[in-house]
Simulated scan of single mutants.
Amino acid sequence: MDRHNIYQNLPDSFEHEEFSDLLSLPGFRIERIVSKGHSSPDVGWYEQDGNEWVMVLKGAGILEFEDGREVHLNDGDYLNIPKRVKHKVKWTDPDSPTLWLAVFYP
């Protein structure tokens, strides 16, 4: 078993968001996402076949849902997004990295 640290190896350049699988098993995945001023494309929504639990470990972001709701997330805030609920990232802090932890499960 190797020990890892979620805060290590953060990207220096933020041209694109960084997505890294930390653990991937059949039907279950843990992902690290690093954003800095990024948002989802204007057109389209995320609509997953499984549930997604997401937490902001560092930074800030706003999730927007198809029904018009917006959820502001800051350090330590987390949210469970049921499967097939359409959502997108509306905003992330442009001045410092936002570090997300996302867990995808059935």
Score class of each variant (00 low, 15 high):
93 D>R: 07
38 H>G: 01
96 S>Y: 07
99 L>C: 09
94 P>Q: 12
87 H>F: 13
10 L>E: 11
13 S>R: 02
75 D>L: 06
62 I>R: 14
1 M>T: 08
37 G>N: 05
56 V>W: 05
23 L>T: 11
32 R>H: 01
44 G>N: 08
81 I>L: 14
20 S>G: 07
27 G>H: 07
84 R>M: 09
60 A>G: 15
9 N>D: 14
105 Y>S: 15
44 G>V: 04
39 S>I: 01
7 Y>S: 13
50 G>W: 06
4 H>W: 00
74 N>K: 10
73 L>G: 15
7 Y>N: 13
16 H>C: 10
62 I>Y: 10
79 L>R: 14
103 V>N: 07
72 H>R: 00
24 S>K: 06
21 D>F: 04
52 E>R: 01
99 L>Q: 09
30 I>Q: 03
30 I>Y: 00
6 I>Y: 00
31 E>C: 01
77 D>M: 12
34 V>W: 01
54 V>D: 05
65 F>E: 12
54 V>A: 11
102 A>Y: 00
81 I>W: 03
61 G>T: 15
32 R>P: 01
77 D>T: 11
80 N>Y: 01
53 W>R: 04
28 F>H: 09
97 P>K: 07
13 S>C: 07
41 P>T: 04
106 P>S: 15
57 L>V: 08
84 R>K: 12
45 W>G: 10
36 K>L: 04
69 R>V: 06
46 Y>W: 03
93 D>Y: 04
14 F>S: 12
9 N>S: 13
13 S>L: 02
100 W>I: 06
46 Y>I: 03
60 A>C: 15
85 V>N: 07
21 D>V: 02
20 S>E: 14
48 Q>R: 04
9 N>M: 05
19 F>C: 02
